[in-house]
């Protein structure tokens, strides 16, 4: 197991380094000049600006400085508003994290329940109903779900019931956090419920379920004690990639609902050509996801005894 974790660790470091290289060269290949504001700039001023941001040094030196700074958590200064990228991330990330965690919790729990329901009541209305919901989730981009929720529940529902249940935008009351989390988590919900259904069906066909039935255990015990606990394993493996889906999905959901999170900064920095901010946030996102994947892999190693066994035999 130590070997497995070590191997994964080396990959993660390599991936982050690759990401660093890509973002650095991206910043230098990017068309346009960050100091071009439309006004004519004196050559001396331009040289001074370039010296200030270290853009006059040779490329390899810039790269080394960039890497060492990034390793110290310093992603440079935003070209547009002069604040340090690190402080912008530190300020906006908590919002994104809260939204993401809410979406993740909602998606996992609701997805698991839907998947279990579909598998236990196989080939009934319950099954096709929950699988239809799951199919909607994979077929509707989050911004469409978000916009529809905003329109129907935020705008049309108050006209119907006379008071506002869900605020249209913002991130201050509990009620305002429901719609964004739902919109963001819906696609993950579908992935989890579809996988859970297949996994449950697989487990329900196993011999030990028959044994449990033959012993005379109640249906409830069989499902919750024997089937679900075993079926839940594969779900853990998709949680890593799903963190990525939720983080990138947050770009649009935060924009739609006006949440002051990192996704919104990312999108506005793209529109403003704010290279350092783009590179800093990309790097942060990338590193975050690589680490999330690593954690999920290691976690899987601990919860599934069969992985350890396979390592020993192999």
């Amino acid at each position: 197991m130590a070997r497995f974790i070590g191997k994964r660790l080396i990959y993660s470091v390599l991936t982050i380094f690759l990401l660093l290289t890509i973002t650095f060269f991206m910043m230098h290949l990017m068309p346009g000049n960050p100091f071009a504001t439309g006004k004519a700039i004196n050559e001396n001023v331009m040289a001074a600006l370039e010296a200030k941001y270290g853009l006059d040094k040779p490329l390899w030196q810039q790269f080394l400085i960039y890497v060492s700074n990034a390793l110290h958590g310093d992603f440079g200064v935003s070209y547009k508003n002069g604040r340090s990228v690190t402080s912008i991330i530190a300020e906006s990330f908590p919002y994104s994290a809260e939204l993401g965690i809410r979406a993740m919790i909602f998606a996992t729990i609701a997805g698991l329940l839907l998947g279990i329901l579909a598998a236990v009541k196989r080939n009934t209305v319950w099954d096709s109903g929950s699988m239809f919901i799951a199919l909607l989730g994979v077929s509707m981009p989050s911004f469409i779900i978000g916009a529809l929720l905003q329109y129907f529940l935020g705008l049309k529902l108050p006209e119907l019931i006379g008071f506002r249940l869900f605020p249209i935008t913002g991130w201050n009351t509990e009620m305002s956090k429901i719609l964004p989390a739902f919109a963001l988590g819906f696609s993950t919900l579908s992935v989890v419920s579809r996988l859970m259904r297949t996994s449950m069906l697989d487990v329900l066909n196993q011999d030990y379920i028959k044994t449990a039935k033959a012993k005379g255990l109640s249906q409830k015990k069989i499902i919750w004690k024997h089937a679900v606990r075993n079926a839940i394993m594969p779900i853990v493996t998709v949680l890593g990639p799903q963190v990525a889906a939720i983080l990138t999905g947050a770009f649009v959901v935060e924009n739609i609902f006006g949440i002051p999170g990192m996704g919104r900064f990312f999108v506005t920095s793209i529109q403003n050509n704010d290279f350092t901010l783009i590179a800093g946030t990309t790097l942060f996102y990338g590193a975050f996801l690589v680490i999330a994947n690593l954690v999920v892999d290691v976690l899987y190693c601990f919860i599934d005894p069969r992985v350890k066994l396979a390592e020993k035999e192999g």
């Binding site: 991936t15 690759l18 890509i22 290949l29 990138t248 793209i270 990309t282 996801l289």
Partner: peptide, 24 residues
Amino acid sequence: MRAVEIINGIPYLILLIVLMMVLD
């Protein structure tokens, strides 16, 4: 396969966004 694994480590959409910024 190691190369694929490293490329796969970077989230797809983020890589796509970065490329879109560099390309015309």
